[in-house]
Amino acid sequence: ADAADRVRWQMAMSFPSTLKALADTAPWVAEQIHTMSGGTMTLQVFEPGKLVKGTEVFDAVSQGKIDSGYVWAGYEFGKLPVSPLFGGQPFGLTPWQMSAFMLEKGGQEMMEEIYAPHNIMPIFCGVVSAEAAGWFAFPLENLDQVNGLRIRFAGMGGQVLQKMGAEVTVLPAAELFEALEKGVIDATEFSMPTVDEQLGFYKVVKYYHLPGWHQQSTSQYLYVNLDKWNALDETQQGILRTACTAGVAKSMARAEGLQGAVLNKFTDELGVEAITLPDEILRELKEKTDEVMAEYSEKDADFARVWGAMTAFQDENRQWAEKGYVQPGWMSDAQGD
């Protein structure tokens, strides 16, 4: 390719690449693209805020203001209610289920179709482990405690909690740490153990709740402005797709590889209590989640279609997932831990 075929794109991030596992795949993917293309394709990483805020990447790519972005699908929830289904939503798919859905069960094609009117080509480009259910000032033991709980919780999970009577706020991230420390709020959700460790929530509150019912996996995508995408030749498109599929494997491996040690460190060294949400609460969360999902399915056809396909796959996969693998908890029982 001569100089005219060179690709030099901005790639805006939704999370800073200093966040372990959650966001450090992006520079790696960019590097692979550069290498595979023999240096003719450069996707330059722009940390959040350098061009636009992480939440605004969708808009900017859509309008062709920036060429591409590596982002969590879901920030465009206000404009595209279906988006969190691709990013990660309550009682959704695990990382490997999500990979199966996107790469083998038509998820990628569905998403391309939905994003095309917004002039975006989305490429599934990374998926990481479950989030935790949040940091609490006290252990959550029963349903009554959820009523009136002052918790910071963004997105659909927040709506579910609201339905259960929780007082949900969306305090700015900038004030989150202090608000938790000083007791302005009782609890907050944040991210995976690796990220939570970096941000130091364990320093102010000690009750870490699991499982991450609200986000069983977090998926990120390479958003490419559709005009820019169409201007690429097949080789270049192939390189982007391949690098992203590699990114999926890389991020899944990296995230899963790191979480265990950090959770152990929380409980063994840092005095954090890892609390499993009581069954009673989880059931109620699931019930309210179904209500929220039904409401959105009613309002939004795309939402209904994707959610339908996802749950169909989840159902189809269930017997295998529950019987094919040694169940979580069995190991601990067997070893008498």
Binding site: A174, L199, F201, V204
Partner: peptide, 17 residues
């Protein structure tokens, strides 16, 4: 509290506390 330190903590993924 300092907005500057909050932003720096965010950029470097350091505990703001």
């Amino acid at each position: 509290p300092s907005i500057m330190l909050v932003i720096m903590a965010d950029q470097l993924s350091l505990p703001v506390g």
